[in-house]
Amino acid sequence: MSRLDSTGCALALLIVGATFLGWELGVQFFQAPVYILPAPSRILATLSANASVYALATLITLGEAVVGLLLGILGGVILVSLISLWPGLEQGVMIVAILVKSTPLVAIAPLLTIWLGFGVLPKVVLVAVLTFFPVLVNMLSGIQATEPALLEVFRSWHASQRELFRHVRVPYALPYVFAALKVSGPLALVGAVVAEWTGASGGLGRLMWLAYTNLNLPQLFAAVFILALAGISLYALMVYTERRIVFWQHR
């Protein structure tokens, strides 16, 4: 297993390395102007020259993304709990959830600032709005897909809805929740960046926006690199947590 992982890792590094090398050589060969496509070496130079600026921005954006994601998960879990205890609520909740979900981010981002001010709160809320939906939908399908044999055992015990929820439905839905989190984790970063893009005093989104309006592409790509890395890290964190928590799925 670990051996397989290390070959996979080496291969992944090789592919990434080759991509970067090709990119670098392509830029050199075609003499692409930096405002059209900067070379990776140039991007990394920008990154290291402004390391502390990027570190602070990353911290802000990651903070917003993580807090927002936690809020989104909490929201999704609460809604699913309500639905599974009072199934009559399902349609109403889903309609409202889809309504919230289908509102374009760029439309609500400025509104959130108007309602919640200039600080990090509107960003966190935007991330939560963006991430709760996958959690809601996946966890709900998990709950509804619970193995009938397990349900029968609990019914034969005349267990209460609460006992059923706690000991069977929720644990059964956990793998589904993690499937959602693998989507929502990287999505949370996108949400935070979009929220910052529409006006913020800090964070990677703001750096990207400034870079874009100055057409400073190395600076823009440096932020993209960090985001990619952060996205991969969040995903890996989800996979790791999943293996720890949903251990029975990986027998």
Binding site: L150, E152, V153, S156, W157, E163, H167, V168, W248
Partner: peptide, 26 residues
């Protein structure tokens, strides 16, 4: 009433002891 199905349907997230203890708790 104590009913046992043909397939034991144990909860995979609990140990054997916890599965049995849970039956008594409920």
């Amino acid at each position: 009433i104590g009913w046992m199905a043909q397939h034991p349907a144990l909860l995979p997230w609990y140990t054997v002891r916890d599965n049995i203890a849970l039956a008594q708790r409920i």
